[in-house]
């Protein structure tokens, strides 16, 4: 059974069909990539899955459970974590603090227990910090552990955002353009981390990415979108050589 299943999903913004009847299935353990020109609707699909937007039609199910009408905060506890295209970290907090918030969906204590700092809260804090340290080690974030996000370089923030997602122990990780704005070396590191997350941690990854070298390197399957509609589907090579995809990219270049 596929882990994430998207069926005939559509949404429009003021008459513009941002996502138009899109269907796909993400299988457990794979890296599934969505490509497409700017404005194709890729981030909108992510926002639909994380329930920030309500679809006008279609359905989304995760691990056999229908989440089309779930609240946004009910998604993380199911085991879906995400990053944002424009980095949405908690700016005034440290890296560690961000990783701890990342684990919010696993919290078990009440606010009263927190206010009194009862043993249950103390134990939970201990466990959360242990988990955060593991993620920090995994992504080599030790030098930034106690640094405020506001002062970190762009490339590091990208990694911290992934770390925050990993801290929740997700089964599915949504990465919105993980390599955008990164240098060639940083992009290469990102490719290794994505492979590590897939192979060592067994996390399924749904990714949006423009950098074709990264797409080719890590993707198991690729879906190409343009103007909200799916154009082609298959391996990275198949999709890139598909005439419609080439036309869509060329069309965009001609417009520009």
């Amino acid at each position: 059974m596929s882990l994430l299943s998207v069926r005939d999903l559509s949404i429009s913004f003021g008459g513009v069909k941002a996502v138009d009847n899109v269907s796909f299935d993400v299988e457990p353990g794979e890296v599934f990539t969505i490509v497409g020109p700017n404005g194709a609707g890729k981030s909108t699909i992510f926002n639909l899955i994380s329930r920030i937007y309500d679809p006008s039609s279609g359905s989304i199910s995760f691990d056999g459970q229908d989440i089309t009408r779930s609240r946004a905060d009910e998604i993380a506890p199911l085991g879906i974590a995400r990053t944002f295209q424009n980095i949405e970290l908690f700016e005034h907090s440290t890296v560690m603090h961000n990783l701890l918030v990342g684990q919010h969906s696993r919290r078990t204590t009440s606010w009263l227990s927190d206010a009194l700092f009862l043993p249950a809260t103390r134990r939970e804090e201990h466990n959360m910090r242990e988990k955060a340290e593991q993620v920090i080690d995994f992504l080599d974030l030790q030098p930034y552990r106690d640094k405020l996000i506001a002062g970190l370089p762009y490339g590091v923030r990208k990694v911290v955002e992934i770390a925050r997602g990993l801290a929740s122990d997700p089964r599915l990780l949504l990465l919105d353009e993980p390599a955008s704005g990164l240098s060639v070396e940083e992009t290469q590191d990102m490719a290794f981390w994505i492979e590590d997350m897939q192979k060592d941690l067994g996390i399924t990854i749904l990714m949006v990415e423009h950098d074709m070298s990264l797409v080719n390197q890590v993707s198991d399957r690729v879906l190409a979108l343009a103007d909200g509609r799916s154009l082609a589907f298959g391996t990275a090579e198949e999709v890139q050589s598909h005439p419609d995809v080439i036309a869509a990219y060329l069309g965009v270049e001609e417009d520009a």
């Binding site: 995400r82 908690f90 005034h92 701890l100 918030v101 919010h104 927190d114 809260t121």
Partner: peptide
């Protein structure tokens, strides 16, 4: 105590990025 535990972190998360806080399950 609240500030050094999940409740306080959820508060500051809402302050700094509501969308993000939601995505973390707050």
């Amino acid at each position: 105590n609240i500030l050094r535990s999940p409740t306080g972190r959820a508060f500051t998360a809402i302050r700094d990025s509501e969308v993000s806080a939601r995505a973390m399950g707050v």
